[in-house]
Amino acid sequence: MTPRLMRRLRSVGLYAAGAAVFVFAVFPVYWMVATALKPQSEIFAPTPTLVPQAPTLEHFERVLSGVLIPGTSFWSFLTNSLIVTLGSVAVASVFALLAAVAVARFRFRLRTAFVVLLLIIQMVPMEAIIISLFLNFRQLELSTGLELIGNLSSVLIVYIAVSLPITIMFLRGFVAAVPRELEEAAAIDGAGHWTVFWRVLFPLVAPGMVAASIFAFITAWNEFIVAFVFLQTNSESYTLPVSLSYYFGRTGTEWGPIMAASTLLTIPVMAFFLFVQRRMVSGLTMGAVKG
């Protein structure tokens, strides 16, 4: 075998491996969309078809027309999902930025304790504290009269908390990277703390906030178990994942509508993901952990 032939073979092998990885990664997503587009008879056919032979939107229509839970619709679930997702991203970003400034710019007695707390809290599985969280919110509701269980506010506050540690750690790196001289120069010019923060620091860390919010966005959009526990008593408050699980519980094996609903849940996050993927990677590996 000549070296040239070997190089050829090697590069063909690499391409083949790359193609195999691509198919492995993409196929389930493709199968979801393909199933969603097949009529019931084709889904039930003894020989599966790789490509829908008679594509139809009937399953999507059924999901979107919202006969699933009387008095609600896909659009109300979508609205709920958007409220908790965008709401938690916005609030968490602002809170995290404030905390990041504190951690990156000041030394104060509880600073180390605060950072250690963030580190440890990131490690505690949400699934473990869901029971006490539920009882805690129940107690809070009883003693303050706040609407929490069966209300979007409970889920919103949990999502804020869950994304805070990672967002703070991430933004802290950005804040630390802003040259202090800039702020000091502004301060000499007579700017107050607020002005310095708003005019100098904020524009410089804004790109970092966008990157940090990606994580919060995806966490909140995809989250299921917390939403399921806190919202299940009130169908008007369901987020998309909860409604999807409900759909599944109702129909069991009606794969057409289930896949159509799954596709609808997936599209926004996928578009978002592809849009921001580079930042996502650096966010998780650099920001989250290295600070």
């Binding site: 009387p70 129940r138 509701e141 269980i149 069966g150 299940q232 008593t233």
Partner: peptide, 23 residues
């Protein structure tokens, strides 16, 4: 208001509602 509760996992929902003073 009419709400339909699937038999699957209905006990979770009953208990959650009961604990939360809802339902």
């Amino acid at each position: 208001t009419v709400e339909w509760i699937p038999w699957d996992g209905y006990a979770d929902q009953f208990q959650t509602a009961l604990a939360a003073g809802e339902g």
